[in-house]
């Protein structure tokens, strides 16, 4: 009963937010070019549904590919860091430093390097989504209880068995915490890529409508973008539910960004 009440309350907070927004725009007669009301944004989204949908696809492709590249390379390097002292000591300071850099600032440069279109978007998305995966996964793999590994040794387990039966599942909560951060970063990366180096995609629509002062369309594209982000995030959460068992109350999950 309490849970249901909380869920209703949570939905009400969203509704209240949009209601206040609508009320403020109405009360102060704010021009749509400054801030359109939510009702008008919904209308524009419906009117422009074809445009929004066709431009969602390239953005989705850029996010997904950038994210997949980031996760695969990030995971492989994390395994290297966790299992090889020399790899760890050589690369870790570089990775931590590189993580702090404002990678978005390189976006205009990627336009010069990779031209116009899909490639720069993927590169930016992958670049900023990569670091949380490496750092979190490496942390997860190296935080495995050493007594547990000794236990496996006493049973005569091979290195591969220790990895698949202990280290990998141990690191999964860390890995998924990283994926949730990375997917949101990949979205940011793809949109920034579309701001500077694309002729299609939701980021391009946002940028183009901004230039033409079509604020209503701009908001419609932002909402479409947000919905895409929420869907992708929920996909990760669903995968986490599927792969991570019985660990929710175990704690130990820390996200770094």
């Amino acid at each position: 009963m309490y849970r249901v009440g909380v869920t209703v309350g949570q939905i009400l907070v969203f509704l209240l937010f949009f209601a206040i927004w609508e009320g403020i725009v109405d009360f102060f007669h704010i021009k749509p070019v400054i801030l359109p009301p939510p009702s008008r944004i919904a209308e524009v989204m419906w009117e422009q549904r074809a445009l929004l949908l066709t431009n969602t696809w390239p953005t989705f492709v850029a996010i997904s590919l950038g994210f997949i590249y980031a996760v695969v390379t990030g995971f492989v390097i994390a395994v290297g860091i966790a299992y090889s002292r020399i790899v760890r000591e050589l690369t870790y300071p570089f990775l931590v430093t590189a993580q702090i850099l404002p990678k978005i600032a390189f976006a205009p440069l990627f336009l010069i390097w990779f031209g116009f279109g899909l490639t720069p978007k993927i590169v930016i998305a992958a670049l900023i989504a990569f670091f949380p995966v490496v750092i979190n996964t490496a942390k997860g793999l190296s935080s495995v209880d050493s007594e547990l590994l000794q236990y496996m040794d006493s049973l005569g387990a091979s290195g591969w068995e220790k990895f698949t039966k202990i280290s990998l599942p141990w690191a999964m909560p860390y890995f998924f915490a990283a994926l949730k951060i990375s997917i949101t970063l990949a979205i940011v990366g793809a949109v920034v890529g579309e701001f500077v180096a694309a002729g299609e995609g939701l980021g391009y629509i946002i940028n183009a409508s901004n230039i033409s002062l079509d604020t209503e369309l701009m908001f419609a594209a932002i909402v479409a973008m947000s919905l895409l982000g929420i869907v992708l995030f929920l996909v990760i959460v669903a995968a986490e539910r599927l792969f991570v068992n019985g660990v929710e109350e175990n704690g130990g999950v820390q996200a770094t960004m």
Binding site: P169, V244, N245, N250
Partner: peptide, 14 residues
């Protein structure tokens, strides 16, 4: 076989 002070069970396995 080994039994420790901590149960050392794998939290992701039933």
């Amino acid at each position: 076989g080994y039994v420790f002070q901590r149960s050392l069970l794998l939290p992701w396995r039933n």
